[in-house]
Amino acid sequence: MFTSMLGPHTRTILTASVVGITLVFYFTLMSDAYAWSFPFFEWMETTWFGVIGKTWGAAFAFVQTIHLLSLALLGGTVLAAEGRVLGFLLTDVSSKIVIDRCHVLLVWALVILISTGVFMACGVALKVYYLPVFWYKMLALGAGILFHFYVRRPLLRFDLEEINPMIVKMTALASILVWFMVAATGRWIGFSG
């Protein structure tokens, strides 16, 4: 009922609200939240995931590999879908089919990526707590998920021909960039600390 009051641009308004609230939170309460979250990260290391991750290096490395493989799948789906939108890949296949089929795979990849990511974070919780690049990755991941489900998905439900081509191209480029940022910051965690 509340969402119906917002009219046809519900998702856009909600996304803008979430982004606005996040920015306000970041600039006012972030330092407090950073301190408050410390016990949570301490607790993460005491969980089963944390203990396994810290005790068995091979288990940690194996989960890291699954994380990488799901990242590869996510990257493949993003590049295939955005390549179609930008007009350099699978141009002789309907854009709607490519976008929809890639979306299903992207969701699967994202679920595996987040599950394995939680396991890995538990194993090195206190290390990542002090790493700025970890927080950049979390911001990038949050931005990627919000962008994908609340900006790109609703927009590309329309026929591409009905949308301003510049907006379509900017959306595709933004999608590639945001997921690349997620991957690159993740890689950089390995080099830090």
Binding site: L68, L69, L71, A72, L73, L74, G75, G76, T77, V78, L79, A80, L90, V93, I97, V98, R101, L105, F180, A183, A184, R187, W188
Partner: peptide
Amino acid sequence: ESTHVLTLMVSLGMLFLIDLRMLGYAFPDV
């Protein structure tokens, strides 16, 4: 090293899509 790892998204990403198509889990109508 980062380039080596991140290029997985292009090489293995595409390979996975092709393999998953053959297995019937991706693009079954293409």
